[in-house]
């Protein structure tokens, strides 16, 4: 039940261990880590800067987390998102979900990432190896990934409708 926005790196193992420490009611922990990639074969991206909307970011992340907890029986959850300048290979985002059984933890982690990507006010600017700078454009596939969780959709049908 926590969200954090920070410049520093995070330790995936330590974060997951802290979440379950001293508890015996958790049967599954899922961790997802997003990493800065150098997408086009390597060597084209020097890094990226992540800007956000302080205040709204934390509110949106908390809202997304609350939505996940309303949908799945989660014993614990955590979202950590980094801001500032990052290099290829650096961690960007961590999502941890803990539940009695694996399915809730898997599904809630996927949901948190899909919702976070379309709602949390972060913006990435890529820094090219040649010194260029470019704002990353939002991807339609991210909207579609988030839409598959829409509650108005008939249960069980949504994934197959994805392109």
């Amino acid at each position: 039940m926590a969200v954090r926005v920070q410049h520093e790196d995070f330790d995936i193992g330590a974060e997951a261990a802290r979440l379950v420490a001293g508890r015996t009611d958790i049967g599954s922990v899922v961790t997802f880590t997003g990493i800065v990639r150098d997408g086009n074969g390597g060597g084209t991206i020097a890094g990226m800067t992540l800007e956000h909307y302080p205040g709204m970011t934390e509110k949106e992340l908390a809202r997304v987390e609350a939505e996940a907890r309303a949908r799945w029986p989660l014993q614990a959850s955590l979202i950590v998102h980094r801001v500032g300048t990052l290099r290829p290979g650096d961690n960007i985002v961590l999502v941890v979900t803990a539940s009695l059984h694996r399915q809730a933890a898997f599904d809630a982690a996927a949901f948190l990432m899909d919702y976070l990507k379309t709602r949390a006010p972060f913006w990435k600017k890529e820094l090219g190896a040649d010194g260029s700078e470019q704002w990353v454009e939002a991807r339609e596939s991210d909207d579609e990934a988030a839409e598959r969780w829409a509650v108005s959709d008939p249960p069980g049908l949504t994934p197959s409708r994805k392109r």
């Binding site: 997003g34 992540l50 956000h52 909307y53 205040g55 709204m56 509110k59 949106e60 998102h81 960007i92 985002v93 990432m113 976070l116 990507k117 379309t118 709602r119 949390a120 006010p121 972060f122 913006w123 990435k124 704002w135 990353v136 454009e137 939002a138 991210d142």
Partner: peptide
């Protein structure tokens, strides 16, 4: 006031209005 809205939303009572491109975090 730090909540997503559509452009048709009423600004009545708002103290802070923010404009930005589609988000690209994660």
């Amino acid at each position: 006031d730090q909540t997503h809205v559509k452009l048709e939303a009423s600004i009545a009572g708002a103290r802070e209005i923010a404009f930005f491109p589609p988000v690209t975090g994660g």
